[in-house]
Nucleic acid binder design. Structure first.
Lengths: 138, 138
DNA sequence: ATCCTACGATGGACTTTGTCTAAGTCAAGT
DNA sequence: ACTTGACTTAGACAAAGTCCATCGTAGGAT
């Protein structure tokens, strides 16, 4: 993750304790935290960090393309640091667990020209829904 | 849409002026209104209808499978009366316009078994994003 | 090493979207 | 027409997020 910090500094990002902490919290695989969860974890490392700063920083990371915003449920947006390998999400309908998955094929190609209504289509989001092994066992 | 009202009455739905108005507002193709928009239109036909009733009625229609809930942006949920023909959505990134589309292929089949992590996968949501002809022209 | 200053952080008010509740109203069966 | 339980209402409440005026500080300039 220090590569991330290096890259950001290279782009003229001003480095602050708050931004460093937010970046640290987002480190790892299969991380899909809400803004409030990011804030809660950041507070343990830097007690005076404010919610507004967490929101601002997450927004900047999204703009810079370093973090993806995903909304798998209709509650809070979640932030996914796995922005450099295209992937989709698999969500448990019961507990809300999220896994990154990599389907075969290109879903963009599945939309025929006569179903595009003149739109320039540039992206597609796919969310698979089901029940995870934990919840199915219970 | 009066078929809808008939069907609901057949299922033991108590018919009220409020429910009738909500069902009327949702009539049509390519209708994707937010709850507040439904309320705003309902008020023009029945001034004393309350927001809570609109939310309740929309929720019931969703439970009954007569209306779909879609969240194409991260703001309000939208309600789609086109619940009987499976379809996906194409969204303009600029103006938010939404079209129903019918892609070829089955996106569920694109998720190989070894990417399912033991989940029982039962549904998939696909949202295409792009720029509509109106916004592209501007 | 110290100073400057523009960029970043803060917290609290505010907005949007949605849920809940207690009390009143009414559709539909008898 | 009466009764009853389902439906509706207004408003309080909650969660998620944005905005703004003010304060603080990172990092270049001296």
């Amino acid at each position: 993750m220090s590569d991330l910090l290096e890259r950001l500094r290279g782009r003229g990002w001003r480095m602050t304790a708050q931004r460093r902490v937010v970046a640290e919290v987002l480190d790892g695989d299969h991380v899909h935290l809400t803004a409030d969860e990011v804030h809660a974890r950041a507070v343990t490392k830097l007690p005076e960090i404010s919610r507004a700063t967490v929101y601002n920083t997450l927004g900047e990371l999204v703009t810079l393309g370093e973090v993806l915003e995903v909304s798998t449920d209709r509650r809070a947006k979640r932030y996914d640091p796995n922005a450099h390998r295209p992937h989709q999400h698999l969500v448990c309908a019961q507990c809300g667990a999220i896994r990154d998955v990599h389907p075969a094929g290109d879903p963009l190609a599945d939309l025929p020209a006569d179903e595009r209504f003149g739109f320039v289509v540039s992206a597609v989001e796919v969310t698979y829904r089901g029940v995870c092994p934990n919840c199915a066992g219970a």
